[in-house]
Design a protein around this nucleic acid. Sequence first.
DNA 1: GTGAACCGGGG
DNA 2: GTGTACGGTTCAC
Length: 610
Amino acid sequence: MEKREVILFDVDYVTYNEKPVIRLFGKEKEEDNKKTVIALDFDFQPYIYVVANDIEMAKKEINELDPESIELVNKKDFQVESQFLKVTFNHPQDVPRLRDEIRKFESVKDIREYDIPFYRRYLINNDIFPMSMIELNGEVVSSFLNIETTNDLEIFKLNSPPRPLEIGNIDFKILSFDLEVRNPDGMPNSKKDEIIILGISTNTGINKVVSTKTGNLDFVEKVDSEEEIIKSFIKTVKENDVDIVVGYNSDNFDFPYLKDRAKIYNIDLDLSWEGSKLNFLNRGYSKAAAFKGLIHIDLYLLMRRYISLNRYTLERVYFELFDEEKFDVPGDKIWEYWDNEGQELKDLLHYALDDVTSTLKIAEMTLPLSLELTRIVGQPFFDITRMATGQQAEWYLVRKAYEYNEIIPNKPTGGQVSSREKNENVGGYVKEPEKGLHENLVQFDFRSLYPSIIISKNISPDVLLKKLSNEEYVKNIVSEQVEDGNLGLDDFNIAPSYNHKFGKKPLGFIPSVIGNILSERIKIKNQIKNSEDETEKKVLNVQQQALKRLANTMYGIYGFSRFRWYSFECAESITAWGRDYIQDTIKKAEGYGFKTIYADTDGFYAKYTG
DNA sequence: GTGAACCGGGG
DNA sequence: GTGTACGGTTCAC
């Protein structure tokens, strides 16, 4: 048996003999003789949980569908010890087909955890994190499904599940690229408008534009045709051991366009590690350009979540981050600059180079945060950069729920989402500012008001007293925690305005998770204080920011209609307590002679009037 | 005032 | 791929 230590870049599954085979895409870290490894796990199976009205009957009925196995297991459901039937299937694609059959059985009350994609389940259950080191145990095989072991690529069959290793410091090779197109008639049309320039910039020192015209500029790689431009791009990516390809709006423009134009010359964009082609994944109404192993990040999508702006053009984002104006050629003028040659051609080529170098700079500045989020949330880097922050928080909680042996709530149905959207939360307290120029102002604000409220008031759906619906919970869980076994109002935190009651004990699932995030963040901040190493300080600082981002996402999320742990009662209790605290503080300040000029949610400005 | 329709980025 | 966006603004009535 052999051992490999690799950085996990990607994970997927393929079907072999009608069974799923997990593929882990890893790269060795050592600079010399560094290999890419595709590790195969033949021993992972999909499953769902069934809540039965009648366990024996349910077993019998489900058995008719010929699952791989049925097993009775204990898991916690909102902290209540419960029994579930764990139904294992042969193939992930059996799940959507059979879950609906199972749901229809009389003996079945509910089904759970039927909507967790297979590769995500694998990462969670094996406690491994993308973009981190893992240990593989198994042996090299010569080939698998037309992919062969070579000098650079190893096919590795696992004998046991992968194991997580300490992360260490990893530098990734990033390549940014950008297309310029000759489009004299409005927006580019890939049927007729050719690619004239392709810019490439890497964090290893390549800065060039590939074009059929040189403009006598030394950064231009001259080729003879559009076909050669495309081939040069593929060659550059392949020869430089690129880890991450970045573009700006490349999901929706550069890659689709490149694919269409490459097709004319029968060129395959086969940049995946195992030689497969560019693939477009459906994401809502749009597409995402993806390879296997090689990670593609579209910075446009990322920037919309990274900073808040009214527009997200490359120029605007670059100016925001670096305070520098970019030289710009208007899109509808590009073809004229190209045709006119002379100085205009030089300007156009400079513009193309500037686009890719600034895209790379943005990537270098912003990707570290997404990398840290990837390592905390534990889903692929590609996915993390395309997820809303609420989704990131949710997948973090899904992982934590597995760790706590808690069953995961189902995703809401379309109907549930729209009825949730009808609920309106009042929000924070706002006092409109008094008109005029004010002097001698004092500013008060709460440090992370909402996360503190969630923790101190134990606001969580699993400890919320809901009339009679969770009578059993109160009887079995909360009363256990009370000394004399008799519950009184003192055993609850009661929200202002709405009177929602949250048991003081036990600690709720989400307050517990937020508490862990915050204490981990404090730990890292102390490490920064004590560290002498500037690089280490930088890395730790990004980790600390990622945790802050995650904690700050948590408080708004109870009111997010697609959230698995959605709870309107929790959402309105948080803001109710928030309003209470700030109004109370304002009142106290007024007692000391301060007059409030303006207040919003978690802070206010006041003037000392004596 | 309200809900539907549209739009973003890219050249 | 065991997943089908999203939030803001303008339009039409």
